[in-house]
Amino acid sequence: ELEAKFKTAEKKIDTKSSEIDPICATFIEWGKEFVNRQPKESTFGLAIQAAFSETKFPENPINSWFREIFQKVLLSKDSDPEKAIICLLAIQGLFFMDFLQMDALSKEQTLTVLDNLRKFLTDDNKAN
């Protein structure tokens, strides 16, 4: 599900005209995809994550997926790695707050945070 939503978000990004790293732009769009999904799906994803932490599998596919995304951003020449990681960590915080059904932010507030992350990265590129 994570990869499918990421691919959907990636298709919405025009990498040629994007002012920020394409991976970061996709991750922001991916965050918006999750804000708009059904809350019932959250408990299923959390159950999968918990199941992997309880077993002796050599590799957790969810952790591997996130590790791969973070490595792509760290190695990207299109962004400041520190600012890009701040962006991804912020989105992860929003993602897991939603997964744990904390209801700390409204949908509108979450979308505003995601839009501001894009501005944060765009402003950084304009300064360089």
Rank of each mutant, 00 (worst) to 15 (best):
K107A: 13
S79H: 09
K40F: 03
M102K: 15
A84Q: 02
E54P: 00
M97Q: 06
Q38C: 08
K77V: 11
K83W: 10
F66S: 00
Q92P: 00
S42Y: 06
R67D: 05
L111Y: 12
Q109N: 13
D115H: 14
F96S: 02
L117V: 12
Q71W: 03
D80P: 01
R37S: 09
D80Y: 09
W65S: 01
K107Q: 15
Q71P: 00
E41Y: 03
T112I: 07
A50N: 11
D80Q: 04
S106K: 13
L94F: 11
L74D: 10
S79P: 01
K107M: 11
Q101S: 14
T110V: 14
T55G: 08
T43Q: 12
D78K: 15
A50S: 09
D115A: 15
L105K: 14
N116K: 15
A90R: 04
L114A: 14
S64C: 01
L74S: 11
F44N: 08
G93F: 03
D124S: 14
F96T: 07
S79F: 07
L114Q: 10
Q101K: 15
F70G: 00
E68S: 04
T122M: 11
F95S: 01
N125V: 11
S76D: 11
K83P: 03
F57L: 10
E68H: 03
T55K: 08
E68F: 07
I48M: 13
N36G: 07
E41V: 04
Q92T: 01
Q71L: 13
Q38N: 13
L121P: 02
I86P: 00
R118P: 00
E108S: 14
Q38T: 08
E41D: 07
N63F: 04
F95T: 03
I62R: 01
K119R: 14
E54F: 05
L105W: 12
I69C: 06
P58I: 00
K40Y: 02
L100N: 09
P39N: 08
I69R: 08
M102N: 09
K40Q: 06
R118A: 11
K56P: 00
T112L: 14
F99G: 08
R37W: 12
I48D: 03
S79M: 07
K119L: 14
F70L: 06
F44I: 04
N36L: 12
W65K: 01
D115V: 09
L46C: 03
K107R: 14
S79I: 07
E54K: 06
N60I: 00
A50L: 02
E54S: 05
S53E: 11
L88W: 03
N36H: 10
S42N: 12
A84V: 05
D98H: 10
K72D: 10
A90P: 00
E108Q: 15
I85D: 01
A90G: 03
P58W: 05
D78A: 14
F44S: 06
M97K: 01
K40L: 03
R67H: 05
P58Q: 07
I48N: 04
L94N: 08
